[in-house]
Design a protein around this nucleic acid. Structure first.
Lengths: 112, 112
DNA sequence: TAAATTTGCAACTGATTGGTTTCATTAATT
DNA sequence: AATTAATGAAACCAATCAGTTGCAAATTTA
C-alpha cells in the first residue's frame, strides 16, 4: 500500500472529504451523508487519509471526529514551491517586456 | 481513463519527470535515461502528462521535446489556496497567543 | 537506397484501486 | 439486560494502473 499525500489527494472523493473537514471536524456518518457512496467506502477513504496523516481522529464516546491536519497539507505546497518560483519569474519577465515596450513608446513620442 | 492533474502527479515517476522537464525541455529518450524503467513506460507517463496538459510537445525532426506547462501547475496551487488561507490564519492566531502571553507576563512583572 | 535512430502504439500481465456486502466491536438507549 | 447506533475490518469483485515485450512509422545517417 502506497500511502503518500499525492496518492491520497488523487481521488476526487478524498479531495471533497478534505474540503468538507477543513471547515469543521466531522464523524464518518456525517461525512458519508454528503456523498452517494456507502459509509464503508467513506470509511476506507478516511483510513487512507489518516494513514498518511492528513487527518487525525478524536474519539467522543462512540463517535469519532475526523479533523484536517493542515500541517500535512503544507507538504503539497512545499513541492509546488520550486515551480512557483518559475512562474513568478515568468511573470517578472512579462513585467520587463511591458516596461521595455513602455520605454520604446516614450522614446518615439514627440517631444513637446 | 481518468485524466486530471491530481491523478497525474500521484505517481512518483511522473513527479520526477515534471521536476526534470521543469529545468529544460527534453526528449523521451533523454528522460528515460534518468530512470530504471523502460523507454516505453516513460512514453506512457509522458502521454498521460500531455493528455492532462501538464506537458506540451515540440517536434524537431524525429525528436520530440517535452516541455512543462507551468500554467497547468498553477491549478494545483489554486486548489491549495483555500487551505493556505487557513494555515496563515492559524499562524496569526499563534501571534495572538504569543502577544497575550507577553501581556500577561508584563502584568505579573514586579513594578520597579 | 539500406541501415540505424527515435518514437508511439497494441497486447498482455500482475498489482492496486475503489467499491460492495457481511460481520464484529464498542458505546448509548430503552 | 436487550436493543439500537456508530464504526472499523474482512472478503470479494470489476476496473484501472504501471510495467513489460514486440512491432510499425517516420526521420537521419551511411
Amino acid at each position: 500500500m502506497r500511502r503518500d499525500i499525492f496518492q491520497a489527494i488523487a481521488d476526487p472523493t478524498r479531495r471533497a472529504i478534505i474540503g468538507l473537514i477543513a471547515i469543521q471536524a466531522m464523524t464518518p456518518n456525517a461525512i458519508a451523508e454528503h456523498f452517494e457512496t456507502s459509509r464503508q467506502a467513506i470509511s476506507k477513504h478516511l483510513k487512507i487519509l489518516t494513514e498518511c496523516e492528513l487527518l487525525k481522529q478524536e474519539q467522543k464516546g462512540r463517535e469519532i471526529y475526523y479533523q484536517l491536519e493542515l500541517e500535512k497539507m503544507k507538504e503539497i505546497d512545499q513541492w509546488l514551491t520550486q515551480f512557483k518560483a518559475m512562474w513568478e519569474n515568468r511573470f517578472n519577465e512579462l513585467d520587463n517586456v511591458l516596461a521595455n515596450l513602455k520605454n520604446k513608446t516614450d522614446e518615439n513620442e514627440p517631444t513637446i
